[in-house]
Design a protein around this nucleic acid. Structure first.
Length: 585
RNA sequence: GGUCCGGUAGUUCAAUCUGGUUAGAGCACCUGCCUGUCACGCAGGAAGUUGCGAGUUCGAGCCUCGUCCGGACCGCCA
């Protein structure tokens, strides 16, 4: 028997048609005489009814033997149901069966689907991923992911970009994340590295005159996972020659508008807001602010330098977070927030209540009148009550703690609309930051970024490094970094200058980046690009908290695949061929 | 590497705080009944190395230590 329709497409207009559908038994209801099977495939669920008045015993007993997740093909006639099922798209019809083939039985499944989702913990879902992916929720997530990549491919292709694949066996460049290494059989003791991103290849493609390139590119970074970070993940990698930052923004905005519309029917407003990095850090304490709600941080370092309150006067930076309307917070609630702050690295979390125009409780008694009035006026608390949290520490720690507390409170107080998408470009990132521990300069982002023109001379002179801003940008939505890009250096001398600022001797950067430097000497066009993270983007559209739920076969926390049991040991022969020895520890 | 949460029937959870009878419930599974269900219903049944290993105790699912697995966060992630 061959199916004529899928399980999601029959409607009352099809009434009277002879059809056959194939799928999994989603649910069976045996009423003793009448038997109902809900048959499910990727497209939907269709109810089939077996009527013993007209069917031979053999068919009835076969239908009655079906259990959840059996694979069946059922033939019959489409008919209108006496009472429609409003929960199903096919709910107005059913198939009045005249035959059934059990294609395959199933042992009792480890879990079932409830409300379209697997009713199991993630541990089982990852182990039995092939069953989990049958759920409506996961099927839909994979479909949305497909729609996003299709929209991206069509959009970029229409704009004159071509998709070019780059190698996954590449060269290790130990800056940045840890590399995944692949031992070479033909070169004993040598290794390929899986690319952390196609960065150098895409720049070489620009030198190669390919003008506009993109790739749905798999990237590999051997760092500890998070709910938004997997050891392998996918970037929408885009690079273009003779392009400005504004043109990249316009291209990206158009692409996001298009894919949100096509994948989710959501209309985004463009152009997106723009915010310099420094303002994001000052107001929100993070470089990826969630702008769906306010709760801005305030700085009072200027007036607390000479404070009588030692915690403030000793601190290099004092910022505070005024939160309107929660002056009635209990000691327990405040203490829970303090625990969160400590978890982020704070020594403690000072607070004061704002009631009837005055500061009360907490540390309020240690503050002078001037400090109190400045704090109240800078808090911009309009209501007559609120709660103020203080961060007194090094600036980056104060930002981290108050920025983290801000996010926690916004969740706790439901300060944002989960349906809203609030995009923002973060611009003007510094190029370099000084690593105190290692006593050297580091690239804040990556080392191929062009400075803004007004800082070019300082960079050539190696002066005021901490002040140099780059043509460097992130795209942030709802507090999530969705994309990152820059205008690149295309001049070998300037690129060498950056390597030397980062403390790399010539021999070292020639070994690591020789190919790129050499290419730049052969007529490299100015170029730049951007790389949105596909997994985070799709997770946001699907309203999933973890990118694991938008990846067909993700790794668990510890980078293992619970379904395949990877990684695994290999044979001694395999090791011998690769000239590898396992060190016992 | 660190902090925290979880691991009990196929599965999701309860019993753990306050150690004490035969470790319970929903779904799934098995048997019987049931002709319009749609998360069908009714009656009955089977199902447990309480992740693993030590320790404390007259007695441990429960307390302690170690270990493994899953998750959140810090570190890390150019």
């Amino acid at each position: 028997m061959k199916r004529t329709n899928n399980c999601g497409e029959l409607r009352k207009e099809d009434s009277g048609k002879k059809v056959a559908i194939s799928g999994w038994v989603h649910k069976y209801r045996n009423l003793g005489g009448l038997i109902f099977l809900d048959v499910r495939d990727r497209h939907g669920i269709t109810q089939v009814v077996f009527d013993p008045k007209v069917l031979p015993d053999e068919i009835i007993s076969k239908a009655g033997s079906c259990r959840n997740e059996f694979v069946v093909t059922v033939s019959g006639t489409v008919q209108i149901k006496p009472e429609p099922n409003k929960n199903l798209a096919t709910g107005e019809i059913e198939i009045n069966a005249d035959g059934i083939v059990i294609e395959n039985a199933s042992v009792t499944p480890p879990f079932n689907f409830l409300n379209g989702k697997s009713d199991a913990k993630e541990e089982s879902r990852l182990q039995y991923r092939f069953i989990d992916l049958r759920s409506e929720k996961m099927t839909n997530n994979l479909l949305i992911r497909h729609k996003v990549t299709m929209a991206v491919r069509n959009y970029l292709s229409d704009k004159g970009f071509i998709e070019i694949e780059t190698p996954t066996f590449s060269k290790s460049t130990p800056e940045g994340a840890r590399d995944y290494l692949v031992p070479s059989r033909l070169y004993p003791g040598m290794f390929y590295a899986l690319p952390q991103s196609p960065q150098i290849y895409k720049q070489l493609l620009m030198v190669a005159g390919q003008d506009k390139y993109f790739q749905i590119a798999r990237c590999y970074r051997d760092e500890d996972s998070r709910k938004d970070r997997q050891p392998e993940f996918t970037q929408i990698d885009i690079e273009q020659s003779f392009v400005s930052q504004d043109e990249i923004f316009e291209l990206t905005e158009g692409m996001f508008r298009d894919l949100f519309e096509k994948a989710a029917g959501i209309k985004l407003k463009t152009p997106f807001e723009r915010m310099p990095y420094q303002k994001a850090m000052d107001d929100y304490g993070v470089d990826k602010p969630d702008l769906r709600y306010g709760l801005k941080l305030k700085n009072v370092t200027d007036i607390t330098r000479n404070s009588g309150f030692k915690v403030f006067s000793d601190a290099p930076c004092v910022k505070f977070l005024p939160v309107p309307g929660i002056s009635e917070y209990s000691r327990k609630q405040i203490s829970a927030i303090e625990d969160h702050a400590k978890h982020l690295g704070a020594k403690g979390l000072a607070f004061a209540k704002y009631i009837d125009g005055k500061l009360d409780g907490g540390i309020s008694k240690f503050l002078s009148e001037k400090e109190t009035s400045e704090i109240i006026s800078r808090s911009e608390l309009k209501e007559n009550n609120g709660l103020i949290f203080f961060g007194a520490d090094k600036e980056d720690m104060a930002n981290k703690v108050l920025g983290g507390v801000r996010i926690k409170l916004a969740e706790e107080l439901n300060l944002y609309d989960p349906e809203e998408f609030r995009f923002c470009w973060i611009t003007d990132f510094p190029l370099f930051s000084y690593n105190e521990e290692e006593q050297r300069w580091e690239a804040m982002h990556h080392m191929f970024t062009m400075p803004k023109p007004e800082f070019l001379q300082d960079m050539i002179d190696g002066k005021n490094l901490e002040k140099i801003l780059g043509q460097l940008y992130d795209l942030v939505a709802n507090g999530v970094e969705l994309a990152s890009g820059s205008i690149r250096i295309h001049n070998s001398e300037l690129q060498e200058k950056v390597f030397s600022i980062l403390g790399m001797p010539k021999e070292e950067y020639e070994t690591k980046f020789g190919a790129m430097l050499n290419a730049f000497r052969f007529g490299a066009p100015p170029h730049g690009g951007i790389a949105p993270g596909l997994d985070r983007l799709v997770a946001m559209i699907c309203k999933e908290d973890s990118i694991r739920d938008v990846i067909a076969f993700p790794k668990a926390k510890n980078q293992n695949c619970m379904m395949m049991n990877a990684p695994s040991e290999v044979s001694q022969d395999q090791l011998d061929e690769l000239f590898l020895e396992i060190k016992k520890h």
